[in-house]
Simulated scan of single mutants.
Amino acid sequence: MESNFFSGLRQITEDCNVLGLPVSELAFSIISAAKKYSDEEIIDVFSRLPNEVAVEIRRQISDYEVTGQYCAVSSAGIADFSGLMRRISQLI
């Protein structure tokens, strides 16, 4: 049975493809969506990602591990994803 996160991943991927966003944006969208899901769902989904997306997520995790901080800047302000990145880095 397909997890809710995997179903959401399909929509995220489709949206990024339609908008022509780079892999780095797709990776960030997947990371930010992970906060809503269980550890098991995160492990399952991240193990099934296309290679180029998995490599980009690992790169972003590596950057987080060096700095200990992971923030995103948007029109809504700055969002701190450091706790989520800590959780993801421990899972994958």
Rank of each mutant, 00 (worst) to 15 (best):
D39S: 14
E25P: 04
G83T: 13
L19D: 08
C16H: 09
E2T: 12
I57P: 00
I43W: 04
Q90K: 15
M85W: 02
A54Y: 07
E56I: 01
I42H: 04
F5Y: 14
E2N: 11
K36P: 06
E41V: 08
A27I: 02
L84Q: 06
N4C: 06
D63G: 05
L9S: 02
S29N: 15
A34E: 03
D63N: 11
D63H: 09
L26T: 02
I57Q: 00
Q60L: 04
I78H: 08
M85E: 03
Q69D: 09
L91C: 04
L19M: 07
E14I: 15
V73C: 10
G77Y: 04
G77H: 04
S29Q: 13
A33Y: 11
P50R: 09
S47F: 05
A33S: 14
L26G: 00
E65M: 13
A34V: 06
E52R: 13
A76R: 13
S82E: 10
L91T: 03
S89W: 04
K35V: 12
F5S: 01
T67F: 10
A54P: 01
G68E: 05
E41G: 06
P50D: 08
S32F: 08
N17R: 15
T67Q: 10
S82Y: 08
K36M: 15
R58L: 07
M85F: 11
I30A: 03
S47G: 09
G77E: 08
A34R: 03
S29P: 04
M1S: 13
D15M: 11
Q69N: 09
E52F: 12
I57H: 00
